[in-house]
């Protein structure tokens, strides 16, 4: 099938403002949007720039705004979108070139919540054991691939780029509710600020945007509740 790709392009070295470029591509209905983008790059215009790595919905590098919604280009099929297909860079991040955005601020916030196991107690002889129920407590938030789809779908983040954002909170949640971890208080203190969890207005855009199906708003609500019950 023939599909019209409308791609928002921008080269900061040449263009004064972003513009829409249109490409007609020949694809199979079961091809992904990523295949259509690669077709453009390989056969029509080699200057088109976008990120992709594993191309199987795990690495999280090809999140972009496709037909007005944040999705992974490698996870959405052309036949489910029809023609034309519009592709734009994620909203709220500075554009480096075409579909590539600067995610440094995003990862700085991720690092701020200490997304690693904190436990100074001597490890037992074998391993730190955990029951299936204790593991299930934070199972949902282990699925995050840090693609940035949730944070860049969040109106609170658009309104104030200093907001720590849903992705960082999800990754804090993953350790806060881990029975082996001892750093919950540190992380909760980091999130207990105006630009932390309290910026969340429960808009649910993050839930809709997450390509991994994480119930992001619920995770944020659980962090808020943990703050409430951890004493003030």
């Amino acid at each position: 099938m023939r599909v019209l790709m409308k791609i928002k392009r921008f080269n900061p070295e040449r263009d004064r403002a972003p513009y829409w470029a249109e490409y007609e591509v020949e694809v199979e209905p079961v091809d992904r949007v990523l295949d259509a983008l690669e077709y453009v790059k390989w056969h029509l215009d080699g200057t088109l720039t976008f990120r992709r790595s594993c191309a199987h919905g795990i690495c999280g590098s090809d999140a972009m705004l496709i037909n007005g919604r944040n999705r992974l280009a490698c996870k959405v099929l052309v036949k489910d979108l029809g023609s034309p297909i519009t592709v734009e860079p994620l909203r709220g991040f500075p554009v480096v070139k075409d579909l590539v955005v600067d995610m440094e601020g995003f990862f700085a916030k991720y690092r701020a919540v200490k997304p690693y196991l904190i436990n100074d107690e001597l490890p037992p002889e074998t391993e730190r054991r955990q029951s299936p129920e204790e593991r299930a407590r934070f199972d949902d938030t282990t699925k995050c691939i840090l693609c940035g789809a949730c944070t860049t779908a969040c109106p609170s983040f658009w309104a104030n780029g200093a907001y720590i954002g849903p992705a960082a909170i999800v990754n804090a949640h993953r350790f806060i509710f881990d029975s082996r971890d001892r750093g919950a208080a540190e992380r909760l203190a980091i999130l207990n600020t105006r630009l932390g969890v309290w910026r969340c207005r429960t808009i649910f855009n993050c839930v809709e945007a997450c390509p991994r199906g994480i119930d992001v708003t619920r995770a944020i609500a659980e962090v808020k509740r943990a703050l409430l019950f951890s004493g003030t």
Binding site: S179, A184, A185, W198, K224, A226, L227, F229, S230, T232
Partner: peptide, 19 residues
């Protein structure tokens, strides 16, 4: 699971949210 841990300070925003 938070019992016995260091407690973070709550602050106005937490109160406003709960209110």
């Amino acid at each position: 699971m938070y019992a016995g841990r260091e407690r973070p300070t709550g602050g106005f925003e937490l109160f406003a949210w709960f209110f």
